[in-house]
Write a protein that binds this DNA or RNA. Structure first.
Ligand code: SF4
Ligand code: SF4
Lengths: 131, 131
DNA sequence: ATTAAATACGACTATTATAGTCGGGTATAA
DNA sequence: TTATACCCGACTATAATAGTCGTATTTAAT
């Protein structure tokens, strides 16, 4: 309940690291060494963020990543869902194949709470974490 | 991320069900049938809630459970942690054995968010869900 | 007494989600 | 040509969640 995945933490650590470096490139190895993150796992996450255009990738021998300028205003909600897929407190707030769905007596109150949380996450943006 | 466990959902469904019945007893079978919940799993959860005194258990042939009068004001935070143990967005908000802990660059901002969420959950109480 | 219906409890298994690894590829500067 | 870095998908391992089973105890009714 309420737990960020490791992947998201690694992603945020990397983003904040890159933020401090401005235009300078950061390599996977540099970051994984500095924060003791499994290199291959971080690599995959950085690649995913590059595909999503959260960061720019520069290939080749002196390559690396730098943070994409216009991403500080992205909400935490969008970031999390871009990286990990839809989030919701209960299945029925995302899909609709719950067997209890028909006569569930907590669906409405729970989904009200879910919407609240969501809107809080939507008002937090990445720069609040990465500065 | 952010997902309630099935056990918590079953617990809340059961609580709300009992709430509507006032002093009348509800049996595990009654509830598991009504909401299509695996009976043995619900049974364990009800037993746990009885131990925690969220509900009263009446043993024997015409036994069952009824909701304990004074629990509507309990916060969602306490309820979740009573049933599932400590909750937090990251390990370091609960324990302190994260290998990144020393030079983690997102610890403070994340824990600030964590505290916010926690305080929101603390202001929601069980009766908001069970009526 | 005996039976039936219920709670009580712990150990067990199954399933799913998360975390981490590996092998083989492409791009580019030196 | 080599070294260093990104790219990608498939794979394995681990941990968390979900669900099952066997056995015991309590109590009302017969
Ligand atoms: S319908 Fe009820 S039990 Fe099913 S996911 Fe929604 S809240 Fe949970
Ligand atoms: S120290 Fe950093 S990486 Fe470790 S749990 Fe806390 S926020 Fe996550």
């Amino acid at each position: 309940m309420l737990k960020l995945t490791r992947k998201l933490e690694y992603a945020l650590i990397a983003l904040r690291h890159m933020q401090t470096k401005g235009e300078l490139l950061s390599t996977t190895k540099e970051i994984s060494d500095m924060y003791t993150i499994p290199q291959e796992l971080l690599a995959k996450t950085l690649q995913q963020m590059a595909r999503l255009e959260y960061i720019d990738a520069v290939q080749g021998s002196h390559g690396g990543y730098r943070i994409h300028s216009s991403m500080s205003k992205i909400s935490l909600t969008k970031f999390i869902e871009d990286l990990e897929g839809p989030m919701g407190m209960v299945d029925c707030s995302v899909a609709s194949d719950c067997i209890q769905l028909n006569n569930c007596n907590i669906r409405q109150p729970i989904n009200r709470i879910n919407d609240n949380i969501r809107s809080i996450f939507s008002r937090i943006n990445l720069s609040d974490i990465t500065h």
